[in-house]
């Protein structure tokens, strides 16, 4: 555990000094704020752009607050996930490739601490940013569209955090097991591509980690099927555990691949 705090301090310093601690929260905040704003002012924006035919009446659907929160989530699910997968695919693999990890691996470090220091910093950056962004989103939605039930929002947020933890575990596992390039491809595939597949063909099954963001939205609307939701959470938590154990295993196994 002593190792952990030293290794975590290193991760912290890295992410402060390369500005990730700044720009990742800002990106999530940006989408959290802009989504309600653009939806609310869309008619005016369209008017201002001025390419509406004379006399056309542009009828926008009335959005519920819940719909605004969910449309923010769909932004996070694309740009946010792209940022997480590509931004962190090298978190272990890159250290091996450029040889900086060599001087860690020759020391009596525990690989559990090593992987967990990376997990921890990713959680702070990714989950912290998402919470920050969604709270700002909630505030703007409240001002422009009305209130969201606090209990439902907490349930929604909790579910989305489990999903984010799943994504983080995928990226961490890939980076421990593969090179940066392959880790990027595998993470993209497992997060974005499978999500797409689940969206297209997912009507045939109901229990899947990739359905968690959808269930999160249903919690917000209080329309979720609890059994399916709970089972999906259980499956996801199991997957997270397996991925993390795998990440530690591969981080240790791939020590010999570090550049000397």
């Amino acid at each position: 555990m002593n190792n952990f705090s030293v290794l975590f301090q290193k991760e912290w310093r890295e992410n402060v000094r390369n500005f990730k601690i700044l720009w990742i929260p800002l990106v999530f905040l940006l989408f959290g704020i802009s989504e309600p704003l653009t939806n609310y002012y869309l008619p005016q924006i369209l008017n201002a752009v001025g390419n509406m035919p004379e006399g056309a009446v542009f009828q926008l659907p009335e959005f519920t607050p819940e719909q605004i929160v969910m449309s923010t989530i769909s932004q996070y699910q694309f740009i946010g996930m792209l940022l997480v997968t590509l931004g962190f695919a090298g978190i272990i693999a890159r250290e091996r490739k450029n040889g900086t990890a060599t001087l860690l691996y020759v020391r009596p470090i525990s690989y559990i601490s090593y992987v967990y220091s990376k997990l921890f910093i990713m959680c702070i950056l990714v989950i912290g940013s998402a919470i920050l962004g969604l709270l700002a989103n909630l505030y703007y939605t409240y001002i422009l569209f009305g209130t969201v039930d606090a209990g439902a929002f907490m349930g929604f947020l909790g579910t989305y955090i489990v999903w984010l933890l799943f994504v983080i575990s995928i990226v961490l596992f890939s980076s421990a097991a593969f090179s940066t390039g392959i880790a990027s491809a595998v993470s993209l595939l497992l997060v974005l591509f499978v999500q797409l597949i689940d969206g297209l063909l997912g009507a045939y099954w109901t229990i899947s980690p990739w359905k968690l963001p959808m269930y999160a939205g249903e919690i917000l609307n209080s329309s979720v099927d609890m059994t399916l939701f709970v089972w999906s959470v259980i499956v996801t938590v199991l997957a997270i555990i397996i991925l993390l154990v795998g990440a530690v295993y591969f981080a240790k196994r791939n020590v010999s691949k570090t550049k000397i």
């Binding site: 700044l22 800002l26 990106v27 940006l30 704020i33 704003l37 700002a136």
Partner: peptide, 13 residues
């Protein structure tokens, strides 16, 4: 008041 935070965030980014 609502748009200003957006502009500031954008500027910092």
């Amino acid at each position: 008041k609502l748009i200003l935070p957006l502009v500031i965030i954008q500027f910092i980014l």
